[in-house]
Simulated scan of single mutants.
Amino acid sequence: MSSELIRMLIIIAAIALFFAIFFSVIPVRLWISALASGVRIGILSLVGMRLRRVRPSDVVRPMIKATKAGLTISINQLESHLLSGGDVDHVVDALIAAHRAKLQLTYEQAAAIDLAGRDVLEAVRMSVKPKIIETPSIIAVAKDGIEVKAIARVTVRANLTRLIGGAGEETVIARVGEGIVTTVGSAENHKSVLENPDSISEMVLNKGLDSGTAFEILSIDIADIDLGKNIGAKLQIEQAEADKQIAQAKAEERRAKAIALEQEMKAKVEEMRARVVEAEAQIPLAISEALKKGNLGVLDYYNMENIKADTRMRELIAEEDDPDEIVG
């Protein structure tokens, strides 16, 4: 192989290597597409994106869409949002949708909403087409104690100005549930709630439940309403049972006190009987002592015994006779 042929092959390989490196570093086709779409961007800008580890297509293609839609956005804004961790394609789509729907949404607002973690495109769609949020079964109790179960459908529209820092769907559902519980609880009876379920919607809607949320509540409709347990009767039964147990406990306490008092009285009676027996046992000793000392004569002692015997006989006769005959 001649030296000239080798030199020619080296030149061809060098040229091929140069073009391979050139086209890998500089996205020429993307640059041509951008120019054909009216997007003015320099080759050096694309090279700079490569150096900053940014895929040029992730910035240029959304820029082409925005330019075609008549939006005024700079390449630097899109690249900065991408480097911040945002979704450039989503932001541009949201701006195009807002522009078509004639909604007031700036690039800064859309980028801030996207960086806040919210779906900015879905928010724009909700601004154009409201969303229906259905609450779970909400249980409330009217003044007559009857349980009322209600399911509400809340029609909301996204509020683009309050998406950043505004509360989400969970807060709306919680507030609507609280409003339904309060409204039903203020009703005199469950019949009035069943007859006018729209009154619940009106009262709840007038409470301004969308304050501080990312939504604007358009309507609240009661989708289903049903009756549950008689909570009032159940509470009365439980209260009556509790009162019964309290009364039984107090009666048992009084019974225990009465038994204790009876036992105490019996003990006192037995004590008194014991004292009487003890005293009676002392009588013969006293009589004997009196006879010894001459304080009591023998005849006096016999007279006393006769009186005692006579008294005992009279008592026995009185017990045997009819009380009516004795009175007669």
Rank of each mutant, 00 (worst) to 15 (best):
F18I: 11
V59P: 01
K143H: 11
E241R: 13
V269T: 13
A279M: 12
I133T: 02
D310E: 14
L261W: 07
F18T: 12
L103N: 01
I138M: 07
R53K: 12
A110S: 02
D324M: 12
I75P: 02
G86C: 08
I96W: 04
E252C: 00
D210G: 08
R314G: 14
L235C: 00
V124T: 09
R61V: 15
N189R: 07
V154I: 15
P323Q: 09
R157S: 13
T171M: 01
A240T: 08
S137Y: 08
V141M: 05
I96E: 03
E320M: 14
Y107C: 01
M49V: 00
A290S: 11
N206M: 15
G168P: 07
I283G: 00
E134D: 08
L227W: 04
N159L: 03
S37L: 01
S74Y: 04
L291Q: 02
V124M: 09
G177N: 06
D321C: 11
K292D: 14
V28I: 15
A187N: 03
F23M: 07
G297N: 03
K149M: 13
I132D: 11
R312D: 15
A13S: 15
I231E: 07
L235Y: 05
A66T: 11
V148S: 06
M203P: 01
I26W: 15
A258L: 15
I96A: 00
I225N: 06
T182Y: 06
R312L: 14
E216P: 00
R273P: 00
E305C: 05
